[in-house]
Design a protein around this nucleic acid. Structure first.
Lengths: 208, 208
DNA sequence: GTCTATACCCTGATAGAC
DNA sequence: GTCTATCAGGGTATAGAC
């Protein structure tokens, strides 16, 4: 996301370039450690252009935030539509989280690790954003369908994906020394065990 | 943690007062939204005193961070010593996390929600701090003892406590409308199901 | 050890030419 | 739409009296 010297960038292209640069800086240094001048320098555009397109620094962060959340939600929505089966959906969601983190760590860092309330005071907490609501929806439907064991819904939702999300944190913090994909099957299994309805206990044979 | 007017505060008492005030401001507004003047004003002390005791703003945050981590670790260590049984330990850790969050939400907010790397650049990530290592230790021992099913250790560790930690986030963000304690038993059960060794399958009866 | 007053820098934001 | 030059304000940190 560094400026290519000589190439003139304008309009929507410039806007995108600024967003990309902002993501890189915000996700690595943090919002407050990044000045508009830093972004200006790295993107190779002028301060005036940034303010023309976004108005102020907070609005730039908000535009970025909305953009990333919407993309994440689109991915989750697709997973939800591909199957009605709760197990398949949960596996798909965890796989999606792992893949997105591996391919776009900066996106995940910004969505998952930033404390948005500190620089977007009017924004509701991330947990209540679209992507997280969609995960909860998956759990609610699974429980209603009897695929999940009856329990407190917030517990089911957090236990289904909380382990995966914590593993993403380890990965993003550089604590994990192996690729995320190594852990995918185990994580899917473990998450499912926590919430799945008991397998029928074969009482028939014992009664016979 | 507001200054009691008229009361003269000095020495170690002043130091503690500043730490308490800093915790309150950092955990609610964030490190970067809190100026030394904010802390000075709320604590009712002078800027000079703060710089005398801590040197600079970052060192103040570091002192606070170390203090809180150490207290948390002491609590976890106690849980670990009270029993050698992995199930009891896991339940105890989750209970400890819930109780601490309910009683000292600001502490948990600062330890769990802050992005320390943004203002303590030389600090290792939280995930590798003492308290988190202790949780991992619990899991490693449980697996070695055969109480937990064989699986990738990072998966077991994150799935054992990741659900609980995510629920803490919901609570701290005000998304949960009921007290944490309502969810404790369900969370302990669910976490354990994810990692526990399969109950012996009663093959004896079938073989007989 | 604690205080007040102040220096100094960086940051977000604006003005106005092109 | 994009640019450069500039401003005003607030932030950390220091100096030096008490």
């Amino acid at each position: 996301m560094t400026a290519s010297p000589g190439k003139v960038v304008r309009g929507e292209t410039l806007r995108k370039l600024v967003l990309d640069t902002a993501l890189e800086r915000f996700s690595t240094d943090g919002y407050f450690n990044t000045s508009i001048h830093d972004i200006r320098r790295q993107a190779g555009v002028s301060i005036g252009s940034i303010y023309h397109h976004f108005g102020n620094k907070e609005a730039l962060a908000k535009a970025l935030y909305d953009d990333l959340l919407q993309r994440m939600d689109a991915g989750l929505q697709q997973v939800m539509e591909e199957s009605q089966d709760c197990r398949t959906r949960c596996d798909g969601i965890i796989a999606f989280l792992f893949e997105t983190t591996a391919q776009a760590p900066q996106t995940m860092r910004f969505v998952l690790e930033s404390r948005h309330r500190e620089f977007l005071p009017d924004e509701p907490p991330v947990c209540s954003s679209q992507p997280f609501q969609r995960m909860r929806e998956c759990i609610e439907q699974g429980m209603a369908a009897g695929e999940l064991r009856p329990m407190e819904v917030p517990v089911a939702a957090t236990v289904a994906f909380g382990g995966a999300i914590r593993l993403l944190h380890l990965y993003l913090d550089g604590v994990l020394d192996r690729p995320l994909s190594d852990f995918l099957p185990d994580m899917q299994e473990a998450a499912w065990r926590a919430i799945a309805m008991d397998p029928p206990r074969n009482t028939t044979r014992e009664n016979a």
